[in-house]
């Protein structure tokens, strides 16, 4: 059986990849993809812990959370893409730095 630390390491790598994406990309679509990667890192952790919590059993609660998270994530993507579309129509570009003027 694959040890737990492998899963956690994979999740950490996914997290760092998502973070890197958020840190360096300026295209809004790419940022949305980065956010999804981050969410998946968290989901992977849930699954891993639910399988390794008690030997021989799988905790269904963790899976519930993940399903919930995926659903919410889909909604987040939908809203984020809508914002991106409208931002593009408004600014004629997808560069996120344009949105800086929304700052108070």
């Amino acid at each position: 059986m694959i040890p737990l630390s492998y899963y956690l390491t994979t999740a950490l790598i996914l997290y760092v990849v998502g973070m890197y994406c958020l840190a360096v990309k300026r295209n809004m679509i790419k940022l949305i993809i980065g956010i999804e990667i981050l969410a998946n890192a968290a989901n992977l952790n849930f699954i891993a812990f639910s399988a390794y919590g008690k030997p021989g059993t799988v905790d269904p609660l963790g899976h519930n959370f993940v399903i919930m998270s995926i659903v919410v994530g889909a909604c987040v993507v939908a809203v984020a893409l809508t914002i991106a579309v409208h931002a593009y129509r408004h600014y004629k570009t997808l560069d996120v730095r344009e949105l800086r003027r929304l700052r108070w």
Binding site: Y15, V16, M19, L22, A23, R26, V96, R97, R103
Partner: peptide
């Protein structure tokens, strides 16, 4: 608070 997402996220990465 620059409002630049990239700076903020770099800070998160540095914190990590």
């Amino acid at each position: 608070h620059t409002g630049n997402l990239n700076y903020n996220m770099s800070a998160v990465l540095m914190g990590l």
